[in-house]
Amino acid sequence: MRIVLDESKCSSLGMCESVAPAFFEVGDDGALAVLQPEAAEDQRALLEEAVAACPTAALRLEP
């Protein structure tokens, strides 16, 4: 599964980072980095929670 970030929507709130800090990090420049774009299937529940936590719908999982 792949984590896809739409940078035009992201406002760097860090809500995803607070749910899944191993996968997301808002850097010192205020830009969100997806630390591991490819994730194992056993991480799906956690990542779905992180995606749902985003108020600007900037994240999605594929497939």
Partner: peptide
């Protein structure tokens, strides 16, 4: 409101990130 809010907010977010 967006889109300006998004850009300005991102600017300030850098000082308030979990790591910062």
């Amino acid at each position: 409101d967006p889109p300006r809010h998004t850009k300005v907010r991102r600017l300030l977010s850098s000082a308030f990130t979990p790591k910062q």
